[in-house]
C-alpha cells in the first residue's frame, strides 16, 4: 500500500484509517496493527511539525508492505535531515512528575515498538524503514530474516 500524505490537518487521520483497514484486511494481529499505526502517527506528525524547510510544503510518501512474516513501513520525506535512529532516548523517563518536560516521547515509543529502524538520507530525502516481525501462529521453524534495506 502506498500513500502520499498531504500537508493538511486531516491528512494524518486519513493515513491512520487507511493503514489500519489495509493491515486488518491483510489479517495482521491487532497488537501489531496498533504498533504500526502508532509508529506511523508518531513519525509523520514529527515530520509535519519539525521537518519543514522554509515555506515550501512537505512531500511525504508512506508505503506499507508485508513480506516474509515482517511488516515494513517506509516513510520518505523531503524535509530537514533527521535521523531518528540516533535521537537520544528521553532522559526524563524516570524523573519525578514535576521534573518531566511535556512531550518528546514519540520516538522512544517508535523505537520500542519496532524490531528495527533503518535510516538513510539520499537525493535530498529522509528514508526511514520501520520493521516489525509478526508472530506466526503454529510455526515452529525460524522465519527468514526481514529484508533490511529501504528501497532506493
Amino acid at each position: 500500500m502506498k500513500v502520499h500524505v498531504s500537508d493538511t490537518s486531516d491528512a494524518v487521520a486519513q493515513l491512520i484509517e487507511q493503514s489500519e483497514s489495509y493491515l486488518m484486511e491483510a489479517g495482521v494481529p491487532f497488537a501489531a496493527v496498533h504498533a504500526a499505526i502508532l509508529s506511523l502517527e508518531e513519525m509523520v506528525v514529527n515530520i509535519l511539525k519539525h521537518g519543514k524547510l522554509g515555506d515550501r510544503s512537505l512531500d511525504i510518501e508512506v508505503a506499507l508492505q508485508l513480506d516474509a512474516g515482517c511488516l515494513m513501513i517506509d516513510i520518505s520525506d523531503d524535509g530537514q535531515p533527521f535521523d531518528p535512529t540516533v535521537a537520544m532516548p528521553p532522559d526524563h523517563i524516570d524523573a519525578p512528575l514535576e521534573d518531566r518536560p511535556i512531550g518528546g516521547l514519540g520516538i522512544h515509543l517508535v523505537k520500542t515498538l519496532n524490531d528495527e529502524l533503518i535510516y538513510r538520507r539520499s537525493d535530498g530525502r529522509n528514508h526511514l524503514r520501520m520493521v516489525k516481525r509478526l508472530p506466526e501462529a503454529g510455526l515452529t521453524t525460524a522465519s527468514p530474516p526481514c529484508p533490511d534495506s529501504p528501497p532506493s
Binding site: 496498533h34 508518531e42 514519540g106
Partner: peptide, 20 residues
Amino acid sequence: TDYLSSAGLRVMMVAAKATA
C-alpha cells in the same frame, strides 16, 4: 478507547501536572 498515542499521553501528563 482502543488507541492512545503520545499526543494523548501528553494531555494526560499536562492534567497530572496541573492537578498535582
